[in-house]
Amino acid sequence: MKQLTRKSIGEFASKNTGYVTFAAMVVILGVLTGGGSLRLLSWQNLAIAEAVRALAALGVGIIIITKGIDLSLGQVVGLCACVSASLAQTPDYVSSLYPGLNLPVIAPILAGVGVGALFGLLNGFLVAYGKLPPFIATLGTMTIAAGLQLIYTHASTVGSLKNEYKVIAQGFLGPIPNMVIYVAIAVLFLWVLMNHTKIGKRIYAIGGNPTAARVSGISVKFETMKVYLMAGVLYGIAGVLLSSRLGLANALTGDNMELDAIAAATVGGVSHSGGVGKVGGIVVGVLTLGLINFGMTYLGVDSYYQLLVKGFIIIAAVYLDMRRAA
């Protein structure tokens, strides 16, 4: 057995700063809220609140690992939410987008995920084959998705969703919110993909050195395309779950989510210089920012100051990460 010395604890802490930080925050917040934040209900709330963001952050996280970026995330999630919601409205609702339409619940899910996949393909194509800088390509698709969202919804709210659709995200399995299960599946899938398949290794290789990847027989374009496609599918799922959770979707749904997701992935240790990032890290990044949100709401911190604190934490996390990497 390895002896637990002060040094080995220190080493563990510096190798796993993300996890240690998160654990420390849980403890501190628990003390500050007099145990209120440690109750099951608080954990359920935190998990539900962060689930959609977690899926989005996983998607953009693997893109960042390839040294890309995706600004279209928020608008695509919003568009997927709108499309999915529009096919899940109660048939007798007068302001329904398709009055009288009554499809099985699988239809809106597939439609939402499908729209996400299409945008993923479009982004991937523009970046990999069109050779556009990812920032610009996804800035374009972001604007397109925002426009489509307005056109599709006629700028009004798609509401009155069926109960069997809402229960997808709002339901519980015992004490565990359904949302947690979906995220767990996505995390497991991506963890296996990134660590135990050649696709994952190739994603890291492309991010680390695309030229060397090409020499090693990796078709960089095709693999890059796959990454954006996977991210698109994740956004699609996120959109479906978001509309199911809110029981509605409109043109504002998903706005600015790209910033939260990119911040979470970054805080979770995904490097914007490519080739570095762990699935577990992204999850911890989402939870860390989520816990800060949750804690500040719980403690009644003014919303304006919440933004300040979040901003500082993002900058500090990245700064220290870069110094550690240097």
Partner: peptide, 24 residues
Amino acid sequence: RGAGIFPQLNIIENTSMPSLDRLT
């Protein structure tokens, strides 16, 4: 440096990259 190594990856990963097809 420009077209050979994957700087952030370890030696195992650097060694096995073109052989992954056969190791799946």
